[in-house]
């Protein structure tokens, strides 16, 4: 997972139905880029059977009763 380019941001915003100007796309790419880079070591490594609800399973099985 790499940081999106302004061009990619513009295309995604268009697809989301909230078009943005070129300068806004550049600013978004600059702002959100570090989050993509920070998550890069995890992205693309998760096992097939893992679903978001696994969080609740861990939370409840490891909760203090």
């Amino acid at each position: 997972m790499t940081r999106p380019t302004p061009r990619q941001v513009k295309a995604m915003a268009d697809a989301a139905g909230v078009p943005v100007a070129d300068d806004v796309a550049a600013r978004i790419a600059n702002s959100i880029g570090p989050a993509f880079e920070g998550f890069a070591p995890v992205a693309g490594t998760l096992p097939f059977d893992l679903e978001p609800a696994s969080f609740l399973v861990v939370q409840n099985t490891r909760a203090v009763s």
Binding site: F39, A43, L46, L50, P52, A53, S54, V58
Partner: peptide, 9 residues
């Protein structure tokens, strides 16, 4: 969704 899926592990 990838960010959400990682929350459990």
């Amino acid at each position: 969704l990838e960010a959400l899926r990682w929350r459990g592990p």
